[in-house]
């Protein structure tokens, strides 16, 4: 449940603008850090890992509205600085393909980058504690913990920005007083589509009804329900976490067996400027 599938225009402007500012700052810093090492070597790896994540994200598991992310795998392969850049690239491509909101791109990048960096740090820390022989178990645990943390961050963002989203003065149609007036003969016909078809034709009565609804519900009940959102996310999410963790454990275990240099080389060794996986090649 790594990134927000919240449409454009639901979160308040200050929140998504802050997300964009923080993301651009993080990407700029990460770009400068990454460029200190041999860029020519890093660009292709960064690109294919980003593309790999996009391939995984393109397949939705419909019943639980989840898709595989491969964020922890990407984090382990790329390290923290390149992970931030990869998450930005992935989100830009997804937004252009209509997959994610453009305004929430900044917040999405922060969440995915957090997931990749946290996954990398947990994997690395647990390997140092438990040893390289337990790669699968470590990858599984790191993925579940990472996804639980980032899902909580996601709910936190909705709680910060979403609770009052629809309670703002928005000009939304009111189901209780929905009318279909004729502009040439005002009030010729009206329908209450969402309230059982009662007659709400007169402006005075409409105003009265709106006030009555507000008195009855209270202003807060018109906002997004963060509690219900959290309940749904924490119910469906763990199924996705388990699938993602199993896949991550399988992938990293497989790679550790057939191409160990990909996991233990590169940023783990910090020497030679070689790309992970090509330690045996002659330059």
């Amino acid at each position: 449940m790594s990134h927000l599938h919240i449409p454009d225009g639901v979160l308040p402007v200050w929140l998504w603008v802050a997300g964009w500012v923080a993301t651009l700052a993080a990407v700029t810093v990460a770009g400068r850090v990454a460029e200190r090492v041999d860029v020519r070597r890093r660009v292709p790896l960064l690109a294919v890992v980003s593309a790999l994540m996009l391939v995984a994200m393109s397949s939705e598991i419909v019943p639980i509205a989840y898709h595989i992310n491969l964020t922890v795998v990407g984090g382990v392969l790329l390290g923290p600085a390149l992970s931030i850049i990869a998450s930005f690239i992935v989100e830009v491509v997804l937004a252009l393909l209509g997959h994610g909101g453009i305004t929430v791109l900044g917040l999405n990048t922060l969440i995915i980058a957090g997931e990749m960096v946290l996954g990398w740090a947990l994997f690395r820390g647990l390997v140092n504690l438990a040893g390289r022989s337990r790669v699968r178990l470590i990858a599984f645990v790191a993925t579940v913990v990472t996804l639980a943390v980032t899902t909580t961050a996601l709910v936190g963002i909705v709680a910060i920005g979403g609770s009052g989203a629809t309670a703002r003065e928005s000009g939304a149609l009111d189901p209780a007083t929905l009318r279909f007036d004729n502009p040439f003969s005002r009030g010729v016909f009206s329908l209450g589509l969402f309230s059982g078809g009662e007659d709400h034709g007169h402006a005075e009565r409409e105003q009265h009804t709106v006030e009555a609804v507000e008195d009855e519900q209270g202003p807060d009940e018109t906002g997004l329900s963060v509690g219900r959102f959290a309940a749904v996310i924490y119910t469906l999410g763990p199924i996705g976490w388990a699938i993602e963790a199993l896949l991550t454990a399988w992938l990293l275990g497989y790679v550790a067996q057939v191409r160990p240099g990909l996991i233990w080389g590169g940023h783990w060794q910090r020497s030679g400027g070689r790309m992970p996986g090509d330690e045996g090649t002659v330059n």
Partner: peptide, 21 residues
């Protein structure tokens, strides 16, 4: 508007995406 590595990787990501898909 982004650092060189970001723009270049973005172009190459899209190309790699075709191949990997």
């Amino acid at each position: 508007i982004t650092p060189g590595i970001v723009g270049d990787a973005m172009l190459m990501t899209y190309r790699s995406l075709f191949i990997l898909l």
